[in-house]
C-alpha cells in the first residue's frame, strides 16, 4: 500500500472504570512510548465514576510534555444535575483545549467555537455533517455503524478532520440503567462501583454460550474488537486521515505501534495482523460495519 505518513493515530477516551493509579500509569506509558498524536481524556460513560479520581493534572502535564495533542471528551448521556455539572466543567476548558461533544447539550455549549464531535452524536449524512461544521466542529469522529459507502460520501464533502475508530470494542448503546450494578443485583444509587472489577468490560453470553456483547456500567459494547487494519488504505483514499484506537486493558503502546508501523509501510497487512493477533491471543476481531454487514462479522478482505 501507499505509505500513509500523513495519517494520525488518536487514542479515544478510556471507557472503563480503572482506578487512578492504573489510569496514571497507562497514560504515562502512552506519553512516553506510544506513537499516538491525539489523546482524548475524560469520562464519557458515567459521571459517578469521577468521584475521587485525581490523575488528571499529572497526566495532562506528561502528555503535554511529550507533545501529544489533548482533547477533552464530554459525557454521552446527560440526564441530571450531576451529569450537567460534570459536562459544564469540561466545556469550561474551551478554548484552551479542544472539547469533544458527545451529547447535543455539549454541542450547544460549544456552538460557534472550535470543537470536536464524538461518535455518540448521530451524523449519518452530508447535511448533518455540514450543520455541525457550520456550528464550529473542526474534528469529527464518526459513528462506528457507518458503512464504507457512507464514509466515502461524507469524506467527499467534509471540511473538518474526519476520524474513524479502527481498534477496540465498539460502543453500541447507553442507558440510564446500570447493567453492571444490575448484574450484581445492586441499584444504580448503591452501585459500589462494581464496574471497576472488569477493566475491559463484562462479557455477556447467550443461553447457548455464544459470546454476545460486553457491558460497561451504563454502556453496552460489542464483544468483538473492531480491527480495520485491512481497510486503512481505502479509508486513506477516501480522505480520512484520523484513526481512533479505543483504549483496552492490553498493551496499547504495542497495539499503537503495530498500526503506526502499518501506516508507515514498515510492515505488510499480514504481518501487522499476525502481530496483533499474537499480542491479543484468543480475541475475536470484526470489521462487519465497514463492509455493510452485521458489526460482529469478520469479512475477509484480500
Amino acid at each position: 500500500m501507499d505509505v500513509m505518513n500523513n495519517a494520525k493515530l488518536s487514542l479515544g477516551p478510556l471507557l472503563f472504570n480503572w482506578d487512578s493509579d492504573k489510569i496514571r500509569d497507562f497514560y504515562f506509558a502512552i506519553a512516553d512510548e506510544a506513537p499516538i498524536d491525539y489523546v482524548y481524556l475524560g469520562e464519557v460513560v458515567c459521571a459517578k465514576r469521577l468521584a475521587g479520581k485525581n490523575y488528571l493534572p499529572e497526566v495532562v502535564e506528561r502528555l503535554d510534555n511529550a507533545g501529544k495533542k489533548i482533547i477533552f471528551s464530554g459525557l454521552m448521556l446527560v440526564l441530571d444535575n450531576r451529569d450537567m455539572t460534570a459536562l459544564e466543567s469540561v466545556a469550561a476548558m474551551a478554548p484552551e483545549y479542544l472539547i469533544e461533544a458527545n451529547d447535543m447539550s455539549a454541542v450547544s455549549m460549544l456552538w460557534q467555537q472550535n470543537h470536536a464531535i464524538g461518535p455518540f452524536i448521530n451524523i449519518y449524512n452530508e447535511a448533518t455533517l455540514k450543520y455541525y461544521e457550520d456550528g464550529g466542529a473542526t474534528r469529527i469522529s464518526l459513528p462506528p455503524e457507518l458503512p464504507a459507502k457512507s464514509l466515502r460520501a461524507l469524506a467527499k464533502v467534509a471540511r473538518s478532520e474526519l476520524e474513524v475508530q479502527i481498534f477496540g470494542r465498539l460502543p453500541l448503546a447507553i442507558s440510564s440503567r446500570c447493567y453492571h450494578a444490575r448484574a450484581h443485583k445492586l441499584h444504580k444509587d448503591g452501585c459500589q462501583y462494581v464496574c471497576e472489577k472488569d477493566p475491559d468490560g463484562m462479557t455477556v453470553d447467550t443461553m447457548d454460550g455464544q459470546k454476545f456483547l460486553t457491558i460497561n456500567g451504563l454502556q453496552t459494547l460489542s464483544y468483538s474488537y473492531c480491527n480495520l487494519m485491512a481497510e486503512l488504505p481505502e479509508l486513506g483514499q477516501m480522505g480520512i486521515q484520523n484513526f481512533r484506537l479505543s483504549p483496552h486493558d492490553v498493551d496499547m503502546v504495542k497495539v499503537s505501534r503495530i498500526y503506526r508501523n502499518r501506516l508507515d509501510g514498515k510492515i505488510d497487512l499480514e504481518e501487522a495482523n499476525d502481530i496483533l493477533e499474537a499480542e491479543m491471543f484468543a480475541t475475536r476481531f470484526s470489521n462487519g460495519y465497514y463492509h455493510d454487514e452485521p458489526g460482529q462479522k469478520q469479512v475477509e478482505t484480500s
Binding site: D208, G209, V250, K254, A278, E279, M280, F281, A282, T283
Partner: peptide, 27 residues
C-alpha cells in the same frame, strides 16, 4: 449435553485468558 458444552467452553475461555496473560508476560 448443552450444559456440559457450556462448561467446557467456560474452561476454554479461562485457559485462553491464562495463555493471554502468559504471552503478555513473556513479551
Amino acid at each position: 449435553l448443552h450444559d456440559k458444552v457450556a462448561q467446557l467452553d467456560k474452561m476454554l475461555t479461562k485457559t485462553q485468558n491464562r495463555l493471554q496473560s502468559l504471552s503478555r508476560k513473556t513479551s
